[in-house]
Design a protein around this nucleic acid. Structure first.
Length: 557
RNA sequence: UGGGAGAUCGUCCAGCGGCAGGACAACGGACUCUGACUCCGUCGACCCAGGUUCGAAUCCUGGUCUCCCAGCCA
């Protein structure tokens, strides 16, 4: 097990604690806006914030940045909580909302006005944009910039009282219209929005902006280290300005690079398109990088946490290989998922010398990685199914599964030898006639002879029928977001293959939704959260097992 | 061409003036009642140019490239 490497944020916190900054206290927060579903990018932030807090004996708050009622909904606050909890983190009741601070935020704004550091601007949005200047030219000051404190106070009060329509006025911080940093060109800190808020109802018609709200919320909560993504780097001077001018407790904002993952997209805008344009079945489609999506796909929360540890934290833009995520998923599931046998593309096998109408039970190990998971019985009979891929009539050199005249082992059962190939009128193989060696019961030959292959199988009369959904990466290119052209064009048309008539061993007949297992030799699967029922089994392929043979076979083509 | 940030194996992350290390990927081998797992091995990087120094990925100077910023979004 690789130990977690250090990172620059941990180093900062370590040093702060060593020098007794904040009396050694560490407090972080995870601050989502409740306007969408959480995805793996959020998982990185969640693991970072909660992880660091835990590591340094501190606390991590869950705080909703709910300052824009037009886009936010209660549904999202609920789903966010469920996702954070599922990921394995606990905010221990510290569930806060920026909207809970509206009154204090208002008072602080009044204070800024009184000190001549904020003013009401009556320019239109358009005019404000024109006054802002460009990246290379300084902005122009608004004619409203020098309104008296009294007038500003009056106007701001009336804004709150609902006397004006949306857009009539805004409150702006008075900083520097010539700053090279656009965020300091008198940023808007309050706007009028006559919209009901999901928590405060119609109590307010003015709402504070992110930059103004976030730093004060951090301050009020006594956050020590306020972690956010790189694009907020040039907002830090504003973060610091507000807290300095207000002369309140001042946390430190630290920025890190957001997560990018190859073969997928992690921007809210793009994820929304996937859903609304119907490229996926919904936010929890197992191909989606949303928390609900990967959960439904069968990724364990622990695997996602391990992944977040392994990708590290730094300031440079980077793209993490999707294969690392899959590795973490396999590593977790290898330890935890019970083994079962399931045949995806059944090929019937008749054991000619096995007595008609009889059956027996064989012992199978539930998880060779964990003896504690015990054993189970698997029924065996004269008619079986094996995987179509496990038989070749004219096998190439490196294929060592079943072929005419060849002997292989059926896992936990017997050695069988292929005697005959039965075809239909179209020449398609419909059935294999085999014989078994009763001496090899359990899977070993008393005479010590070896076979090259061991196949999984299911007894035909005992088999449970199932639908199996084979998922693959959603995009067929490493960075679907990059370059010109629409990322939608890079969708992998083979990202979902639905197989019906799959044959599973009977122990799976009552699989609970979301239960995970390994179909031996195939991959890890999970009973679908929504669709799997005892009368209609549905499994999702979480991730295939590593398969060197597939690689060889592919190369040959 | 304003402001901010970043450049280390194919990918991600360490390093903080003293032998460039780990993980994933790839490749080869051992083992195997899962062609899985595990184990062993191989491949492979300091953006460029100067300078300081006994010694530079690290410090200095100058370049180059990439990312972010002109919402009354967060």
């Amino acid at each position: 097990m690789a130990s977690v490497p250090s990172n620059f944020i941990r180093n900062i916190i370590q040093r702060d604690q060593k020098y007794y900054k904040h009396f050694g206290r560490v407090a972080t927060r995870f601050p989502p806006e409740p306007n969408g579903y959480l995805h793996l990018g959020h998982a990185k932030s969640i693991c970072l914030n909660f992880g660091l807090a835990a590591e340094f004996g501190g606390t991590c708050n869950l705080r909703y940045d709910d300052t824009n009622p037009a886009r936010e909904e209660l549904e999202y606050v609920e789903s966010i909580k469920a996702d954070v909890r599922w990921l394995g983190f606990d905010w221990e009741g510290r569930e806060y909302y920026a909207s809970d601070y509206f009154e204090q935020l208002y008072d602080f704004a009044v204070q800024l006005i009184q000190e001549g550091k904020a003013y009401v601007d009556s320019l239109s949005a358009e005019e404000i944009r024109e006054h802002r200047g460009t990246l290379t030219e300084p902005g122009k000051e608004s004619p409203c910039r020098n309104r008296s404190v009294e007038e500003n106070l009056d106007l701001f009060r009336r804004m709150r009282d609902g006397e004006f329509e949306d857009g009539a006025h805004v409150l702006r911080a008075k900083i520097d219209m010539a700053s090279g940093n656009m965020n300091l060109r008198d940023p808007t800190i309050y706007r009028i929005r006559k919209v009901a808020h999901h928590r405060t109802g119609d109590q307010w018609c003015i709402y504070p902006m992110y930059d103004y709200t976030h730093c004060i919320s951090d301050s009020l909560e006594g956050i020590t280290h306020s972690l956010c993504t790189l694009e907020f780097e040039d907002h830090r001077p504003l973060y610091d300005w507000v807290l300095d001018e207000l002369a309140v407790y001042h946390p430190r904002q630290i920025e890190f690079a957001r997560l990018n993952l190859s073969f997928t997209v992690l921007s809210k805008r793009k994820l929304i398109r996937l859903v609304t344009e119907g490229h996926v079945s919904g936010w929890d489609d197992p191909r989606m990088p949303t928390i609900q999506g990967v959960r439904r796909r069968g990724y364990p929360a622990g695997a996602i946490r391990t992944f977040c540890d392994r990708i590290g934290v730094a300031k440079r833009d980077s793209v993490v290989d999707f294969a690392l995520l899959e590795h973490c998923v396999r590593e977790d599931l290898n330890r935890t998922a019970p083994r079962v046998m399931g045949v995806l593309r059944p090929l019937k096998v008749v054991i000619e010398n096995y007595p008609q109408g009889e059956s027996e039970e064989l012992e199978a190990i539930n998880n060779p990685e964990d003896e504690g998971m015990g054993i189970r019985k698997v029924p065996f009979s004269r008619e079986l199914y094996i995987e179509q891929d496990d038989f070749m009539e004219n096998p190439p050199k490196k294929f060592f599964r079943l072929a005419p005249g060849r002997e292989v082992r059926l896992r936990y059962a017997y050695f069988i030898t292929c005697r005959d190939v039965i075809r239909d009128e179209n020449g398609e193989i419909t059935e294999l006639r085999c014989t078994y060696d009763p001496e090899t019961r359990g899977g070993d030959a008393p005479d010590g002879r070896k076979v090259k292959a061991t196949l999984h199988w299911v007894s035909a009369p005992h088999a449970a029928d199932a639908e199996v959904r084979l998922y693959d990466r959603l995009f067929n290119t490493e960075s679907p977001g990059a370059g010109k052209g629409d990322f939608i064009e890079h969708i992998n048309s083979d990202s979902l293959e639905v197989l019906t008539g799959c044959k599973l061993e009977p122990s799976l007949a009552d699989a609970a939704p979301e239960s995970r297992c390994q179909f031996e030799r195939l991959g890890y699967f999970c009973a679908d959260l929504r669709d799997c029922r005892p009368d209609r089994l549905v499994f999702n392929r979480t991730v295939p097992l590593r398969d060197p043979w597939a690689k060889i076979a592919k190369k040959k083509k």
